[in-house]
């Protein structure tokens, strides 16, 4: 994937870049409006990560420019602004998704995958990982072609891990992904353990290899 990170906070920008640069991904960066404007005018990206408040201009203007030029780049807005109006404005201007800061990098990556999938693989909603097939639209999981029943949350969690394969996902990130605003529940971290345990069992029962790897109680890695 070819990605562009438009973000004025340098340390955040570098972290995102570092996380995303793997598996043949190419990450461009831009720290201000003009820089970003030049890049999107010249190149084409699979997904553009767009911060709204930029030095030298408003991120939404870049979005307007993209739509005016009828560019097909996917756009994922990352912003600290969380008002409904702001979200609606961004999405109606053609952004594919809106992620409110602060977020986990794994969440960001999963969202990028979703954006790119929606934009590029028209009609193809199947994600494959070795013997596992995930049908994103039908919300179905097959192991060696046999459907395995997953609950909604288990499905979301597996998709989340597959999107972040070879990355360690913290329990905190997984909890936010599954529970959203209710992730502050004291024991939501423990529930993640239960979910993972169930997913593992369902997969191995279907003859799948165990791809989950625990990392000292902080999180899990799928590879």
């Amino acid at each position: 994937m070819k990605l562009l990170i438009i973000e004025d906070e340098a340390s955040l920008r570098s972290s995102i870049q570092k996380y995303l640069t793997a598996e043949g991904n190419v990450c461009d960066i831009a720290g201000n409006f003009d820089n970003a404007y030049q890049k999107i005018a010249i190149y084409e990206y699979d997904c553009i990560l767009l911060d709204l408040g930029l030095p030298g201009g408003e991120g939404l203007d870049l979005l307007r420019f993209l739509r005016k030029e009828q560019k097909e780049d996917g756009v994922l807005i990352i912003s600290a602004r969380d008002s409904i109006e702001q979200k609606i404005e961004g999405l109606s201007l053609g952004a594919d998704d809106y992620l409110v800061k602060p977020f986990h990098l794994s969440e960001l990556y999963a969202r990028i995958h979703a954006v790119v999938r929606r934009r590029q693989q028209k009609g193809n909603n199947i994600i494959s990982f070795n013997e596992i097939e995930i049908d994103v639209l039908a919300k179905e999981i097959k192991v060696y072609g046999v459907t395995v029943y997953f609950t909604r949350k288990e499905f979301d969690l597996l998709l989340y891990f597959v999107s972040n394969k070879s990355k360690v996902i913290s329990k905190a990130a997984a909890a936010v992904h599954i529970w959203g605003d209710n992730a502050d529940m004291a024991d939501s971290f423990d529930y993640i353990y239960t979910h993972i345990k169930n997913i593992r069992k369902k997969l191995t029962d279907a003859g799948c290899r165990d791809y989950f790897q625990s990392v000292y109680g902080v999180g899990y890695k799928f590879q």
């Binding site: 972290s15 800061k101 986990h104 990355k167 913290s170 902080v218 999180g219």
Partner: peptide, 22 residues
Amino acid sequence: MTPLAVINAKLDTLLQSNTLGK
């Protein structure tokens, strides 16, 4: 929110390190 995003991102980055001990 932005500093929090930085902290989160740095933690996530740290987590990817292979030399993580108990």
